[in-house]
C-alpha cells in the first residue's frame, strides 16, 4: 500500500527556535493517524508544515507519492485540506456560510457550485437553513461543522485535523467526532489528527505517534495503548494523566 503522507527528517525552524527536530513519519492511504503531545511538542507545527504554513528548514514531505517543494500548487489543496482548532477564529466574520463554501469552488473553478454547497451542508448535518447565516449566528459545534464542510467541498483525500474538538463542549465534541468518523468511512479519507487528549486519539486513530519537545517519542498502535503496552515513561505519564486525578495520601 502506498503512503498518503511520508515525512522524512523534517526540521522546522522559527527564527532561531527549532520547533521540529528531524521527525519522520509515514501515514498509509486510508488510515487514521494521530499525533499526541503537550503544548510545544511540535505536533501542530508538523501539521502546518505539511499544509505549507510553517517554514521547513530541511527534510522532505511526500504526499500521495509526490514530493512537495517550498510552494504548494492548487492541485495540492485539492488533495489535502485542514480543519483548525478554534471554530471561532477559522470562519471569516463578515461572510455567510454560503460565501465561505463558495470560495474554494470559485478558486478551483467548479461549475456546479449550487449543488455542491447543498450536498456539503447536508453531509455535515446542517441543512439549507444554515446556508445564509453569518458565523456569529452559529454555535461552536455548528461552526466546526461548517469548517468541515469547507474542507470537504474540494473532495480531498487527506484531511489534517488540528485539535478539531478541543474548544467544544464534551457533548458537542462527541457529535463532531462521530461526524468525522462518518465522513472518513464514506469518502475513504486519510486522517492526520493532532490532539493533546490520548482518549480522543485512541478513539479516532489506528496508529499514533507521541511527541515531546519537537521530537518523536514513540510510535504505537491504538491497541497497544489500550493494553498499556508502552515503552516510554513519557507516554506512561500521559496515560496516567488521562485517567483523571488520583489522590495520593
Amino acid at each position: 500500500m502506498t503512503a498518503a503522507i511520508a515525512i522524512d527528517g523534517l526540521e522546522v525552524i522559527f527564527d532561531r527556535f527549532r520547533a521540529l527536530k528531524g521527525v519522520s513519519l509515514e501515514v498509509r492511504s486510508g488510515e487514521s493517524f494521530g499525533l499526541v503531545g503537550e503544548s510545544g511538542s511540535g505536533k501542530s507545527t508538523l501539521l502546518r508544515a505539511i499544509a505549507g504554513l510553517a517554514p521547513v528548514a530541511s527534510g522532505s514531505i511526500t504526499v500521495n507519492g509526490k514530493k512537495l517543494g517550498p510552494r504548494r500548487d492548487k492541485a495540492f489543496y485539492r488533495e489535502v485540506q485542514m480543519v483548525f482548532q478554534d471554530p471561532y477564529g477559522s470562519l471569516h466574520p463578515r461572510q455567510t456560510v454560503d460565501r465561505l463554501l463558495q470560495e474554494p469552488l470559485a478558486i478551483h473553478g467548479f461549475a456546479d457550485g449550487e449543488k455542491r454547497i447543498q450536498r456539503a451542508l447536508d453531509e455535515v448535518g446542517l441543512g439549507s437553513g444554515f446556508r445564509f447565516r453569518y458565523s456569529h449566528q452559529l454555535s461552536g459545534g455548528q461552526r466546526q461543522r461548517v469548517a468541515i464542510a469547507r474542507a470537504l467541498i474540494l473532495e480531498p483525500s487527506i484531511l489534517l485535523l488540528d485539535e478539531p474538538t478541543s474548544a467544544l463542549d464534551a457533548s458537542v465534541q462527541a457529535e463532531v467526532l462521530n461526524l468525522l468518523e462518518e465522513v472518513r468511512r464514506r469518502r475513504k479519507l486519510t486522517f492526520l489528527m493532532v490532539s493533546h487528549d490520548l482518549a480522543i486519539v485512541t478513539h479516532m486513530c489506528e496508529r499514533l505517534m507521541v511527541m515531546q519537545g519537537g521530537e518523536a517519542v514513540e510510535n504505537l498502535t491504538a491497541a497497544q495503548l489500550v493494553a498499556h503496552r508502552v515503552t516510554e515513561d513519557y507516554t506512561r505519564n500521559l496515560l496516567r494523566a488521562s485517567e483523571g486525578f488520583v489522590r495520593t495520601a
Partner: peptide
C-alpha cells in the same frame, strides 16, 4: 485562522487581499 483557511484553499495573494482582507 480564517485567512490561513483561505490560503489552504489555494487562493492567490491578490484574491486574499481583495476579497478577504479589504472587506474587513
Amino acid at each position: 485562522d480564517y485567512i490561513k483557511a483561505v490560503q489552504l484553499m489555494g487562493a492567490s495573494p491578490f484574491r486574499i487581499v481583495l476579497r478577504h482582507i479589504m472587506p474587513l
